[in-house]
Design a protein around this nucleic acid. Structure first.
Lengths: 146, 146
DNA sequence: TATTGTTATACTCTATAACTATA
DNA sequence: TATAGTTATAGAGTATAACAATA
């Protein structure tokens, strides 16, 4: 047995607190958490189906439809039928979508930086490296490591 | 702007994955996430009111009642009226409660250790130190740092 | 017949408000 | 009147199932 609290017992409340920290920032930009996740995912690269987009942000395909409707109505994303298969929707960020995303992210990261500033330099660097490594793992490997 | 993903964009999915990892372990011990959180909180020290217990684990006082009922029925906690003020309930872990808690926690932490083993030593140490520091902060300071 | 996106339905989780018993 | 605990109600979030369009 270790002498530390459970990882989950530290991360779950931290996760909740970060959500509480960031929702007001997102609201200033007219975004919900899921809408912001959509903008982040599409910024990487356009996606060919809504189901793929949903999966990439850990959501159900039925859950993001309302958010896509809204983002499209506001001109932040484009959602056009694929000419080669008219069942699927091609999804991409508009210039305005990228602008909103960048400005929301700037607000969020500046708040996060203020938080990280409380940590000693070397812990902060190790923390961020470890976090990026763990976030890059497929969820199944976290659920059942080794 | 930093060159990293948002903290929240890494921590929220990690948090979800850890929950998925730990629920099966808890279920083996007949515990839900909230029931386990109750056992962990009471292990630190007995508590004088249910509302204080609820707050310490980030729950609403109305939400933990069913779990307390069940834990008491199974003899894992004691819940006795305070003789000096019969409105309040004194809460504490029984020996059996501590046994179940220890065995569940052993299962959880061994799974977590397998996950942490993927990280380089110094990153892992920095990660755990940073996490403990952040988890010790009051939620308000995370929601609005500085 | 199978698949993409959508809508409709049911279920779970959580928060709010009412109730009781004590003080 | 106020507080601890409880119960009841309502709301949000989520998952499952049915549906329409296209392949």
């Amino acid at each position: 047995m270790t002498d530390r609290p459970d990882l989950a017992a530290m991360i779950i409340p931290l996760s909740r607190a970060l959500i509480d920290a960031e929702l007001p920032v997102l609201r200033e930009h007219g975004l919900s958490m899921w809408a912001y996740a959509v903008l982040l995912a599409l910024d990487e690269r356009p996606l060919r189906t809504q189901a793929a987009l949903a999966e990439s942000i850990g959501a159900d395909k039925t859950r993001i439809i309302g958010f896509l409707d809204d983002l499209q109505r506001r001109g932040l994303i484009e959602r056009t039928p694929d000419p080669t298969d008219r069942r699927v929707r091609l999804l991409s960020l508009t210039a305005e979508g990228r602008r909103v995303r960048d400005s929301a992210q700037a607000g969020i990261q500046s708040k996060e930086e203020r938080l990280l500033a409380r940590l000693p330099d070397e812990d902060r660097r190790g923390f961020l490296r470890a976090l990026q490594a763990l976030a890059a793992l497929p969820p199944e490997e976290i659920a059942d490591p080794r």
